[in-house]
Design a protein around this nucleic acid. Structure first.
Length: 717
DNA sequence: GGGTTAACCTTTTTT
DNA sequence: AGGTTAACCC
């Protein structure tokens, strides 16, 4: 059979990886070196040239979106569907295993998935049961603690006991949380991984079955795997040891949430004879862009070492814009986007990247003024929105009356007179009698423990759910959603609220009906369509829901930009404290991660890259004065061209220019000055005018200080 | 029980 | 600044 079409478009290194013999293979793939290409072609090769059945392939990706895309590409290449191939995130694969073997995993058939929001609620409830104060035991930190342990493969019984009372208490909370989840058949995200791991590890027949089945395992974004995920891979690959991993240590940017770059190093030890292939030819960026990115990443000590190169031309120089403040920065960016568009280019070809999501606001405002359509990534995704979660909670409760998190969520949404007092009593009853909230409520309406008012509200709610249940029977999924929205009163509730937000909420709810209508579920795993849809909603946050196919400018954080590319990129906010972020300077290793983030940002650019920073920035409602990011200092001067705003002089730019001359030229950038108490220093920047003029001085003794010129009494040397 | 104001806390994100 | 949560009054 002719398989040359799989190899034709590849370079030597790519081809070597794609048709390497079975065994363990590590592909160190630099940014833009065709990583996805290698993975998809490898699958195609294994199937088409080696005659391996898709059934024997397990491919793991970082996001659901990546999995979908990759599957699509393979099917497009081969021209037939990859039926039976397992391709998805670690979580979706774990979920699949647990649904198929719920009994062996010690679960109930209808187990529900807790997303992080639900998990937080469960933790709060655990704290309440233990009579602990949320102020002293922040639920967020408990969540961090529990997930941290689970992701390292440790249950509460594995955590070593200490004499530290704080630690012991945390452990007690962890244990109580586990019990609560078990009691109500709830599985959080890290539990999916841990439980599926234990299932395969401890159940011999299943282990043998899956180890035999998955003859070829492929992993994308390996640098982002955590401990339990890596253990997973080792377990599944144990029989055939055919494992093909692709990763880039220089793009490891999720260390803060447990990802281990070290897994890459460990891999070669755990799989002796691993073949390592480096993909160093970059097909994305111009030489100028690549040089700058290389210069920055080269500052990192802990690297496996890799040098990206390109055949591409030098291209335009990378440009730096020093903005007066964040508004000036945004105006500059939008101005450049405008001229990009004037040259007949697309809006969707440009991206504005920033370190933290809060920075998007100013860009949005300026883009809005300029009437340029844009899209902001990040923030709440579709299935995470409150109104959507409310609607799903109704459906969950209908599906299982024992679902306490759902009960709590919607018992009084929309408000129906069931307040904290009543709820508290219901919770107490449930705790004492070890029953679900639903059963507790049913019991309570027949006692005299509640006020008559509370009893009537509560029974009205119970009836509502029962009615809804019979109403939904036998209906299609979309009809079920629609009925739920109307009958629960949710739609009416949000419709009568005023404001833009309420409008979007109603639209979102309507979109949920569409999502249900479009949801197609293959019945092969034995679950009914409703519960499959509910799991889908928890597992897949619905990034692209109701995506409008409009050509727009892309705004996103550096983290969400990973894996993407754009002809024109703006890397903004390069200020010490913001990027690298303040919080990254405390912990060891975090600074290098910030630098990798910078590298990721730069390597997103194909043709043009602009870097900018603001001298003054409004942050947390205050004016902050940051010095230029250290990453800028790591770029050789000749690689970076400083530019001025090209527009007909924005107002802010003008005042900035004035400010520099306004103090009679006495205090200027670079001047040596002396302060009565701080001693000698050099002027780093000047800002404001007249009596408001402020200067930033780097003093030999105390470092950088901002001073009001009028009071500082600086002596010019 | 429900609506209203005062303190609080700010990275990054997927599942 | 902005958004959320906790205390507070009707």
């Amino acid at each position: 059979m002719d398989v040359s079409f799989i190899l034709d478009s590849l370079n030597d290194a790519q081809r070597e990886a794609v048709c390497s013999p079975a065994g363990s293979l590590l592909v160190l793939a630099g940014a833009g070196s065709g990583k996805t290409r290698v993975l998809t072609h490898r699958v195609a090769w294994v199937v088409q040239a080696c005659g391996v059945s898709p059934l024997s392939i397990l491919a793991v990706t970082f996001t659901n979106k990546a999995a979908q895309e990759m599957r699509g590409r393979i099917e497009h290449m081969l021209g037939y569907p990859m039926r039976g191939m397992w391709m998805g995130t670690f979580h979706s694969i774990a979920h699949r295993l647990l649904r198929a073997h719920w009994h062996e995993a010690g679960l109930e058939q209808g187990f529900q998935i807790l997303d992080s929001d639900d998990q937080l609620r469960m933790i709060k409830r655990t704290l309440k049961e233990l009579n602990l104060d949320e102020g002293y035991w922040p639920p967020k930190q408990i969540q961090w603690y529990i997930n941290g342990h689970k992701e390292e493969g440790r249950r509460s019984k594995h955590v070593l006991d200490t004499i530290d009372t704080q630690q012991r208490e945390l452990l007690r909370i962890y244990r109580a949380y586990e019990e609560l989840c078990d009691r109500f058949a709830l599985v959080d995200f890290s539990e999916l991984l841990l439980r599926a791991f234990e299932l395969i590890k401890n159940n011999e027949p299943l282990r043998v079955r899956y180890q035999q089945r998955f003859q070829h395992i492929l992993v994308d974004e390996f640098q982002d795997t955590n401990a339990i995920q890596y253990e997973w891979l080792k377990l599944f690959a144990a029989a055939h040891k055919n494992i093909f991993i692709v990763g880039d240590d220089d793009q490891s940017i999720y260390g803060w949430r447990g990802a281990r770059v070290e897994n890459i190093l460990q891999f070669e030890k755990d799989f002796p004879g691993t073949m390592v292939i480096r993909l160093e030819q970059n097909y994305r960026s111009t030489a100028n862009i690549l040089n700058i990115a290389n210069a920055v990443i080269d500052q990192n000590q802990s690297r496996l070492g890799k040098n990206l190169w390109t055949h591409d031309e030098e291209g335009e120089p990378v440009r730096l814009y020093v903005a007066y403040n964040e508004i000036d920065e945004a105006r500059f960016v939008v101005d450049r986007i405008q001229s990009w568009l004037d040259q007949g280019n697309l809006r969707s070809e440009t991206a504005i990247l920033y370190r933290s999501n809060a920075q998007s606001r100013v860009f949005e405002e300026v883009l809005l003024q300029a009437a340029i359509p844009y899209r902001v990534y990040g923030g709440l995704r579709f299935f995470e929105r409150a109104e959507i979660k409310d609607a799903l909670a109704y459906m969950r409760l209908v599906a299982s009356r024992q679902d306490d998190p759902s009960f709590e969520r919607i018992v009084n949404v929309p408000a129906r007179g069931i307040g904290n007092r009543t709820l508290e009593q219901t919770r107490d009853y449930a705790r004492v009698n070890q029953v679900s909230l639903w059963d507790a409520a049913r019991a309570l309406v027949h006692t005299k423990e509640l006020s008559s008012r509370a009893i009537s509200s509560l029974s009205l709610f119970l009836d509502l759910i029962e009615q809804l249940a019979s109403l939904l029977e036998g209906k299609t999924l979309a009809d079920q959603v629609e009925q739920t929205l109307h009958h629960s009163g949710l739609l009416a509730h949000f419709a009568k609220e005023k404001g833009e937000k309420a409008q979007t909420r109603v639209e979102n709810l309507e979109e949920l009906i569409t999502a249900a209508r479009n949801y197609d579920h293959d019945e092969e795993d034995g679950t009914d369509t409703l519960s499959a849809f509910l799991s889908h909603a928890a597992l897949e946050s619905g990034e692209g829901q109701a995506e409008e196919w409009e050509d727009c400018v892309q705004l996103m954080s550096l983290h969400s930009a990973k894996g993407l590319e754009f002809p024109l990129v703006f890397l903004t906010g390069l200020e010490e404290g913001l990027f690298p972020h303040q919080r990254s300077l405390q912990e060891p290793g975090r600074l290098e991660e910030e630098r990798r983030l910078c590298y990721v940002g730069m390597t997103r650019a194909m043709k043009l890259l602009y870097i900018s920073y603001a001298e003054v920035r409004h942050l947390y409602g205050r004016e902050t004065y940051g010095s230029p990011s250290r990453f800028l200092g790591e770029i050789p001067d000749e690689m970076l061209v400083e530019v001025r705003s090209s527009g007909p002089g924005t107002r802010d730019r003008f005042s900035f220019a004035n400010a520099r001359e306004d103090n009679g030229g006495s205090v200027q950038l670079g001047k040596q000055v002396r302060h009565s108490s701080f001693g000698e220093g050099i002027v780093l920047s000047v800002e404001g005018r007249g009596e408001h003029t402020r200067v930033q001085v780097n003093f030999e003794s105390v470092g950088n200080k901002w001073l009001v010129l009028a009071y500082a009494n600086l002596e010019i040397l």
